[in-house]
Design a protein around this nucleic acid. Sequence first.
DNA 1: TAGATTGTTAATCGATTAACAATC
DNA 2: TAGATTGTTAATCGATTAACAATC
Lengths: 214, 214
Amino acid sequence: MKDHTKISNAVIKRLPRYRRYLNELRKKGIDKISSNEFSELTGYTASQIRQDLNNFGGFGQQGYGYSVEGLYNEISAILGLDKDYRMVVVGAGNLGLAVVNHTYYYKTGFVVKGIFEVKKDLIGKKINGIEIMDYENIVAFVEDNNIDIGIICTTKDAAQEAADKLCFAGVTGLWNFAPIDIETPSHVAVENVHITDSLHSLAYHMSKNADEKK
Amino acid sequence: MKDHTKISNAVIKRLPRYRRYLNELRKKGIDKISSNEFSELTGYTASQIRQDLNNFGGFGQQGYGYSVEGLYNEISAILGLDKDYRMVVVGAGNLGLAVVNHTYYYKTGFVVKGIFEVKKDLIGKKINGIEIMDYENIVAFVEDNNIDIGIICTTKDAAQEAADKLCFAGVTGLWNFAPIDIETPSHVAVENVHITDSLHSLAYHMSKNADEKK
DNA sequence: TAGATTGTTAATCGATTAACAATC
DNA sequence: TAGATTGTTAATCGATTAACAATC
């Protein structure tokens, strides 16, 4: 595998999508695919697919194409999906519970080890066998249980404080669902998921379609 | 407002973010901001901000800057947030319920009018006063209630079929949370939210950080 | 008026696409 | 070997940044 310290984010964002389609092919028992066929499937140009993949190494074979299984495994490894991640969720509201259930349902190497909440009446309950604990004890829990990722499902106002606590306790990644951009030290990766922004994009495209009709 | 039939998607994706920050400023009672100050706040360059805004019109004033309130309203209008949207949710699982609660909590002109489900034992229950109805009746409901947006919170396998039904019934937008890319006729806008892709990006960045440490 | 800051054009940078030689 | 398809370089395209004249 080549040195990939300076791969652009545009490329990284496409990898999970490539992987999703490869997984479908794999499940269908298809074992080879050319960049042209893959282009038709994914909507990316064949050229871009080859270019993207060659950032990481030559995974194909001239005159043949790519091994579906092989490429799937390579991309999984590039994304860091060849190991397990231990996670905690902060906030046991609907969003927190949806995330817990989602990872539980899709079982993928991302495992929720604990849920933390400030509201006393929720503490002690269990979701999918995972205990809801007192937010006060989050730092100790993260330290003692080698937690990798903190999932922030708090209100906007509580999010940055939760992030700071998690970073202090030693997580190396944050998955933030609160509608604010979380700041972290450079060694802690963050994904800010702004679900409402996506709804607003949708509204824009709907309005534009409506305008064009006139 | 200028003709904006060919605004790039990169620009559109930034608008909700601009709007979010403007809303914060507005709530703090700040009534003017320069592109330089706004740059520091949002992380985009002042040049890009001015360039982006000028796609839609000259909203600023030389020597002064931008009116926070005015710009907030302009961006809201561009995004189509100056009117209400009527929505239905397909799938009353955790994800569906999280979405229902989310829009309920943030009250923003996006109103869920009905929830549809195939599982008979859930039908008839209410969430935030919204009834869970039989999926069989979705087409009639969408037609009769002028529904604009369908929110797909089904399994992967059921998603495209639900999308087809919703399009047939006359929605003009789909917000899809199932892990598949939904296809629609060109007059129906779609936002495919791939929550898992974002987790995979996070994993990539975490792995990269870990590698650099070595 | 002088100073500040936009609106807009021009320059740069990066990402995508096209082309083709290498090779399986 | 001949055909197919990759890996990779070169060309194009688009998006971002820089610069500055317009103007409040």
